[in-house]
Computed example of a mutant assay.
Amino acid sequence: MIRLTRVGKTYPDGTVAVHELDLEVGRGELVCLVGPSGCGKSTTLKMINRLIEPSSGTIEIDGRDVTTSDPVTLRRGIGYVIQQVGLFPHQRIVTNVMTVPLLYGESKAVARERAESLMSLVGLDPATYADRYPHQLSGGQRQRVGVARALAADPPVLLMDEPFGAVDPVVRVRLQEEFLRLQQDLDKTVVLVTHDIDEAVKMGDRVAVFADGGRLAQYATPAELLARPADDFVADFVGSTRGLRRLAVTPIDPALLEPMDGVTAGELGAAVDVDSTLEQALAEMMRQDKAMIGVKDGHRFVGVLTPAGVHHALRASLR
């Protein structure tokens, strides 16, 4: 869906912001760009919609080189969400969300219907919030409006630059989970910039770690990144707790569960859902002070997870 080939950005003073970057993002994939400040991740994002022009290389969306496209037309077909949201303060919330459809020539009635539908989708009741102004909303609510506005033209590509960075940690977690739920339904191709490795491994199907000088240090799934850092820089960046982080990105594998034969209800305590992560299962096991925990698919037990099973699942996730 998105392909960057030997893309570079060098400024007139000789500063290299991005160095010959090769990167592919599959259709419907959510890719996180992460790295220290000044490593070129936001520059890369802005080159995709040509808010910054690349110095070299090609950027393709669906096989079309966007560096030869009209930049205004290009941007209208790409959703863009930034940390500070960028809502028009003098316009009501529903009007903010209607902006791009109106630019495309949609009637006000159709654009408003689309805007109200999207507001509901991101958890803002139009009856309550449509006629409010941005200053009347919390930071988390304004961020939701920003996402709704970016989706208003139903773009196949969504670019997000530190979208949840301006809100408190509790709201941030809720927004992350809400967006992941939306992504399951919308199946957009998303490139998300963050400085937070925990956010990157939670959100991303794949994670691109940038090093100083605009160099791509590693591009991998969260599980592979945490288990097999490409070099000392990546290992230091993901941190010494990367082993624990792997638990949060590794799902339970039903094929590796132990059978229920001979296990009593008293040994198990409460069960976890088969869609849980190893972290969730292990946390529940420790909370209940049990040596094992049952795993359910709906109302049916599918097996038992033990600490040894957690270890086997971690090893199997990298085969």
Rank of each mutant, 00 (worst) to 15 (best):
L118E: 06
P259S: 06
A17F: 05
Q176H: 06
A227K: 02
E53C: 12
Q83K: 01
F164G: 04
K9Q: 13
G298K: 06
E284W: 02
Y129D: 07
A150K: 07
T221H: 06
S117L: 10
Y104Q: 14
K46I: 03
K41W: 02
D65Y: 07
K108C: 03
V171Q: 00
K290Q: 12
T99Y: 15
L51Y: 07
P251N: 10
R300F: 11
F301M: 15
P101I: 02
G63C: 04
A152I: 12
P134V: 01
I82R: 03
R174V: 09
R149D: 13
T221G: 08
I252C: 11
I82P: 05
S107Y: 04
G77D: 14
V85M: 08
R64F: 13
L74A: 02
S55V: 06
V85A: 09
R246D: 04
E162N: 01
V190C: 02
D13N: 15
Q184F: 04
G14I: 08
K41G: 03
H135A: 11
T73E: 15
T99Q: 13
F88L: 13
E199C: 04
K290R: 15
Q176S: 03
E162T: 00
K46F: 07
T221A: 06
G8T: 12
P254V: 08
D22A: 07
A127P: 11
V209H: 06
R3L: 04
L314C: 06
Q143G: 02
R245K: 14
L216K: 10
P222S: 01
K108F: 05
T58N: 14
Q176P: 01
V145A: 00
D168C: 10
T277L: 12
L21D: 01
V122R: 02
L51A: 05
T250K: 07
V209T: 09
A200K: 09
V122C: 03
R174C: 09
Q136P: 07
